[in-house]
Design a protein around this nucleic acid. Structure first.
Lengths: 113, 113
DNA sequence: ACAACGTACAACCATCTGGTTGTACATTGT
DNA sequence: ACAATGTACAACCAGATGGTTGTACGTTGT
């Protein structure tokens, strides 16, 4: 297995995992993955100020998990499933490391027999 | 698809994504998924104090991504691949939401034709 | 017995985070 | 023209985060 780890992907990993570490943001992401929503529409769903929700959307946008599209005075947010998949692939990489450990242990057991 | 979201899983999701949002912790997790390491052994790998690394290990442990086992005066840390998989399945759930959106759009296109 | 080792945790500090209110500005509808 | 709507962002605040040093305590080796 080939693993490429550059500074840039570490930065985006930081941003993505951080964005996902808040339940309000995960909920927003769920909604915008299901379909486009304006920031105001999203804000109406939560028991906090518009500004707070707008900041959550901005965090998701900076992490690349969401993109916005202007439509008149509205800003329509849409979830980026590619970005979600890239996070999943980071976890797959970790699982791959674990499988390597298991393979080594099994090789050792075979050696002992 | 059935989706179960209780308060408890949201708490652990918060903890897990937060734990993964730091590159030092992701690196520690990679090492302990590959094999057992004492806290001191881990600490030697990073350009920060032992206490800082010990705290990172504690964060990973509280999130359930890592478990420790006493061995004399050493504390051997081991990555929990099941926990990593549970994070991956949360992302799968998000991807499932997105697929639902695509299915709805396709249904709409079929309707229009 | 005692020095060295491995660990945990408290106290402290600068910075970040997640919330608030207020302001500014572009777009829309009357 | 102007009021209402949708958005962005600054300023502020309490609490969390990520680092530090210092201390305490059990385990190990001589």
């Amino acid at each position: 297995m080939i693993v490429i780890v550059n500074e840039n992907t570490e930065d985006t990993a930081d941003a993505m995992f951080h964005a996902l570490s808040d339940r309000t943001r995960r909920d927003i992401l769920r909604r915008v993955l299901a379909g486009e929503h304006s920031v105001t529409t999203l804000a109406a769903k939560y028991d906090m100020s518009f500004a707070a929700v707008q900041k959550h959307v901005a965090v998701l946008e900076k992490a690349g998990l969401l993109t916005k599209r202007r439509n008149g005075r509205e800003q329509l947010a849409s979830g980026d499933v590619q970005a979600v998949r890239s996070v999943a692939s980071m976890l797959d990489e970790l699982e791959g490391v674990w499988r390597g450990r298991v393979a080594r242990i099994e090789a050792l057991l075979i050696e002992e027999n």
